[in-house]
Design a binder for these strands. Structure first.
Lengths: 246, 246
DNA sequence: AGGTAATGGTCGGAGTTCATACCAATTTTC
DNA sequence: GAAAATTGGTATGAACTCCGACCATTACCT
């Protein structure tokens, strides 16, 4: 579906996209698994009830239940019945490892690189917007909490999850649901990519410094600075990934 | 575990989105109608064959045909059988008019405003990226053609379509399919909004000047300038719309 | 003129998804 | 301890979607 690079930039080719990529079932599995892996629902937390989730995802409960069964079978969650029961996250965050950067579809690779490009636009935009908004104390507390979680995380897997949450939190601060959607999607892909490469302490330290600078810029309302820092942050990650993934 | 649903900045609330908004049939109608109204397929042009469209939209031919039937019934297209036949666009571009800014769902209004926010991030990003890329002569020709079409358009309806195409063309120049998707979506919403307000010659002239500046910046590879101009362009349109739509 | 190819039009069975109702387990509440 | 409430578990039939094969029409090509 993706035109190979160099193909003519024909509008009609570029604009028409799959009207519906997956079946509802797959879409649910994908979204829930992503949500869990990104740490939106951390280890031990309880997901919303089936009925609520079904409504939220705009899917029948039957379909949602099939998705849940898949997650259960995959070991991401466990389920208890009865009032006060529900579905709890049991997945331990996966530790990044340097395996399997090979075995990549050309299409997949193209998708990944495209995500990096898109990210470099969307996330700096979100950062600038967050800096522009005047944030209420609650919002600032969320930002600080997310930032502290990243800074405190010791094990690489925890750091990875906290990092995702940090970036999602910034997007959520803007109050734009479309932005949140875009960042979620971008972070999901990014998460996949980062699992395929080795993690270096130096990279983490560098990243943490950028996070701190970013938070400062957002709190001060310096949107140009916030954007610039986030751009640099994205560029650094992208360079790392492009280098290691080809 | 789940914070109260009043917090608009809650991650778990913000991240979970409908896994699938429409049925395949509706999605097809929507996308095709949008594509036509945005002028990707101008009046008199022939759409791709049903088999090709079905594959492109990742939908069975039966479903696509139902969508086509809806478009036919709505008067957007006409269909002829046999080799050399196909489906041609018959919709005359609608003339913007000052009606029906009333009768807006609160949700709808929220969606519209959100689109303006998202646009202000995505389109300037696309412009900057297009300026950064070194464009081959074919690409430059497409850019110029799209620009010339906007500048030449006399009737408001034609201008509106040409404007959409111009913005889509810039996104397409970047070669990023995710960006094209984002801009398409944003332009579709924008199109709806602009149909609900009166069009002023002064606005059009102003917009045209910005287009010219933008094209110049892109051709020169001045990405900062390209972004700044596009930001201003978005801000101006947004201000107009926010003012007239409340 | 006749054959070929490309197009839309039609049909039927298989798989998904949906909506609804009801059952079962467990906690909370009184 | 009993009732109520909330949660997951199950079942059924309707509607939608998909796939594949085949038919009908028309233009192009030899």
């Amino acid at each position: 579906m993706l035109p190979s690079p160099g193909t003519s930039h024909d509008l009609t080719e570029a604009v028409l996209r799959p009207a519906r990529g997956y079946h509802a079932f797959e879409a649910c599995v994908e979204q829930l698994a992503t949500t869990i892996r990104l740490g939106v629902y951390p280890l031990g937390s309880t997901l919303p009830s089936e009925r609520e989730l079904a409504e939220r995802l705009n899917v029948s409960r039957s379909t949602l239940r099939e998705a849940m069964a898949a997650l259960r079978e995959a070991g991401l969650v466990e389920t208890r019945r009865g009032r006060g029961g529900g579905t709890v996250v049991t997945l331990k965050p996966r530790t990044p490892s340097a395996r399997a950067a090979a075995r990549l579809t050309e299409e997949r690779r193209h998708e990944w690189l495209d995500s990096l490009v898109f990210r470099r636009i969307v996330e700096p935009g979100a950062a600038a917007l967050a800096a522009r908004a005047d944030l209420d104390p609650t919002a600032l507390a969320q930002l600080d909490a997310a930032h502290a979680a990243v800074a405190k995380a010791r094990r690489p897997a925890d750091h990875r999850q906290a990092d995702s949450r940090f970036h999602l939190t910034i997007a959520a601060l803007t109050g734009s649901s479309r932005l949140v959607e875009a960042v979620t999607s971008v972070q999901a892909t990014l998460h996949e990519m980062l699992l395929a490469i080795p993690v270096l302490d130096a990279n983490i330290a560098h990243s943490d410094r950028q996070h701190a600078t970013l938070v400062r810029a957002i709190r001060r309302g310096n949107h140009d600075r916030a954007r610039a820092v986030m751009e640099e942050h994205c560029d650094d990650t992208a360079a790392l990934l492009r280098g290691l993934l080809g």
